[in-house]
Design a protein around this nucleic acid. Structure first.
Length: 648
DNA sequence: ACGATCACG
DNA sequence: ACGTACGTGATCGTG
């Protein structure tokens, strides 16, 4: 047996690396010691659990003083036995990853192990949800260990980096160009990291030491954060978040079926489109449509003048600038107010085709498993507001104005994609939390909120005299202003964002505050509370949301966005209670994308929609169920498109 | 590593 | 006193 020593917070810890069956006696003694929560971690060949060739190399167990680093292949039976002991509880940092690894390679099932694993990430997020970039301590193991365990905690990933780089360089000298290219193709992001984690000697002292340290840090973190959670009265919320996370981890394992033939054709078509417009742009001297410098230069050369700036003060050449130059509106339709600039037109089209291909179509194909399913990573507790995030691929961000990308995602055979979304959930939550009298009355009456607001703002007389087109415009403005209120914005930003005249927006915003005076009052209340509660606001479930000093006006948005997220998270639990969790594919902020057997799709989504519905402080949060079709895209097609697809 | 851009709710 | 648009993830170019 190899052993390694390391100091953590001035105490010596021992890392054991068994090499023979006899070496496992100490490991068994370790497990049999006084009942406590045991740190758990895995080292794998990469982060893509469902890709070909993925392997789990090490499984680590540990407490505050010692770690046991077990080779996954050599001691497979021992690991399975340890993880299956029902009296043992474990703690991991970012538990979904390790749970899915162990599940994937057959060392423990998600069903058995999942309910017995704590996650220090969850506890840390409840204490302070900010990443380092966001002005907080951060939520990575190393960052948390430095704050709560040991100032000098090792960055175990970073520490291996130089070794991995060296290994990778050496390897590259021994193999052909083709082999290197093939490796870079499959590991485009960080080829040397991927190479290192796959090939480093399994008994490499630093690899083993760092593998062991991670569980020691995690075990110590649990002790520290556990006390903080208990002291803050957040035990119930922590339990809730663990349950929500386990539900989304099941969704991640289930994944979504990809229509491979369709997606290949789509990727090809997008590439052709991109190439066509890149070619046009080249004719105007833009070799690279993604180079802002080239684009600015070429457009100026054509005599275009614009004043839009980026946050850093540079000239902006996003689609807000380019579409008007191409005489196109937000829906990409000709406006007819100027001669379209052919370069601006080519750039927006080339960039959109590239974006759709590289961010969506290609990842659908490369990330899929042997059953053509993608398994996006779902972080159930991600944003500062606790909103969920989905990555790899980013399924919460697929284009919604066009069905072609979503068409690539299919329901399982014999099933249909169904979905239910909340109607204006953030407005309803705001009405409830700020106790907005008139808004609550309108919701209770079942009125269309934005229409009713327009009537209140403009007056019944004006509304009655208005043409349908004018009414539509007034309703749309109220919707925009409503969002602006939820986001804490003012007339300037709203006018810019919506493209509507400043005077109209300013007038609407002022009237909005008169009609719903509780909203600005609530914002002031939250900011007062934050001032004497350490610069943070608290949601009704007791979640702490730190504010940025210079952006205290965001308080309302934080509380509303966070509470709306909790509405959806609670719905996931009710659906789970009802035994319908296996039908939920993906949460998307205010909707659940599901699948249901084709014969009962209508009833199933109606029931899921019913389970989603709830009340927040006696304000009804309504949902709308819908049957899409064989693909996710079916829900985004015009009736004509859908009909012609059904015919085919 | 960071800014710019673009995709979503 | 005034006014502030909120939260994400992925890709590409640039230094």
């Amino acid at each position: 047996m190899k052993t390694f020593k390391y100091r953590v917070d001035r105490e010596e810890v021992t890392i054991y690396f068994p090499e023979t069956e006899d070496d496992l006696a100490g490991f068994r003694r370790f497990l049999n010691a006084a009942p406590r929560v045991i740190g758990l971690d895995t080292e794998t060949t990469g982060l893509r659990i469902y890709s070909r060739g993925f392997r789990c190399r090490l499984v680590q167990f540990g407490d505050a003083r010692e770690a046991w680093v077990l080779q996954a292949d050599r001691f497979r039976a021992e690991i399975i036995r340890a993880l299956a002991r029902p009296e043992l509880r474990f703690v991991a940092h970012n538990a979904p990853f390790d749970l899915l690894v162990l599940d994937r390679v057959g060392l423990a099932s998600l069903e058995d192990l999942g309910p017995r694993v704590f996650d220090t990430y969850i506890l840390a997020h409840l204490c302070d949800p900010r990443t380092d970039r966001d002005g907080g301590a951060g939520l990575k193991l190393k960052q948390l260990a430095a704050v709560y365990v040991d100032n000098d905690a090792a960055d175990t990933q970073d520490g291996l980096n130089s070794i991995f780089l060296e290994m990778y360089r050496a390897w590259k000298k021994t193999v052909s160009r083709d082999e290197i290219q093939a490796w870079q193709q499959t590991h485009a992001k960080k080829p040397h990291t991927a190479y290192g984690f796959t090939h480093i000697a399994i008994d490499h002292p630093l690899y083993v030491t760092y593998a062991g340290l991670d569980v020691v840090y995690t075990a110590r973190l649990l002790a520290e954060l556990g006390l903080l959670i208990k002291g803050a009265g957040l035990t119930k919320l922590a339990q809730f978040e663990h349950r929500v996370q386990l539900i989304t981890t099941h969704q991640q394992r289930r994944g979504l079926l990809i229509d491979v033939e369709y997606t290949k054709t789509l990727a090809g078509r997008l590439e052709e489109e991109a190439e066509t417009y890149r070619h046009v742009a080249k004719g105007y001297g833009v070799d690279n449509v993604n180079s802002t410098r080239q684009v600015i230069e070429a457009l100026r050369g054509m005599g275009e003048v614009w004043s839009d700036k980026t946050d850093t003060g540079n000239p902006a050449v996003g689609k807000e600038v380019l579409l008007p130059m191409a005489d196109l509106n937000k829906d990409w339709q000709r406006v007819g107010v100027r001669d379209p600039n052919p370069l601006a037109d080519a750039i927006v089209r080339a960039k959109r085709a590239e974006k759709w291909k590289e961010s969506y179509a290609v990842p659908f194909l490369t990330d899929r498993d042997e059953n053509d399913r993608i398994h996006p990573s779902i972080k159930s507790l991600a944003a500062r507001t606790a909103r969920m995030s989905v990555s790899g691929p980013p399924l919460q961000q697929l284009p919604s104005g066009d069905w072609t990308i979503r068409r690539a995602v299919l329901a399982d055979p014999g099933h249909l994609i169904v979905a239910a979304d909340y109607s204006a959930v953030e407005m309803r939550v705001l009405a409830a939390l700020a106790d907005v009298r008139e808004m609550k009355r309108l919701i209770a009456e079942g009125a269309d909120l934005h229409t009713a607001t327009a009537i209140m703002v403009y007056g019944q007389d004006v509304w009655d005299a208005a043409t349908p087109k004018q009414r539509k415009r007034m309703r749309s403005l109220m919707k925009t202003v409503g969002f602006g209120k939820v986001y804490g914005g003012g007339a300037t930003g709203l006018s810019k964002q919506s493209g509507l005249p400043y005077a109209d927006v300013k007038n609407a915003v002022d009237r909005y505050d008169v009609v719903y005076p509780e909203i600005p009052a609530y914002g002031r209340l939250l900011q007062r509370q934050a001032a004497y509660k350490g610069g943070a606001v608290y949601t009704p479930v007791g979640r702490r949301l730190p504010l940025d000093r210079d952006r205290a006006y965001a308080a309302t948005n934080y509380v509303v966005q966070s509470s709306a997220r909790d509405v959806l998270a609670q719905a996931l639990c009710r659906i789970d209670d009802a035994g319908m969790s296996h039908l939920v594919l993906l949460p998307v902020h205010d909707e659940l994308v599901c699948q249901a057997p084709a014969g009962e799709a209508e009833e199933v989504i109606r029931e899921i929609g019913r389970l989603m519905e709830t009340t927040v402080r006696d304000v009804f949060i309504q949902s709308e169920p819908e049957v899409y079709g064989r693909s996710w895209g079916a829900g985004y097609m015009s009736p004509d498109d859908r009909a012609s697809l059904d015919a085919a």
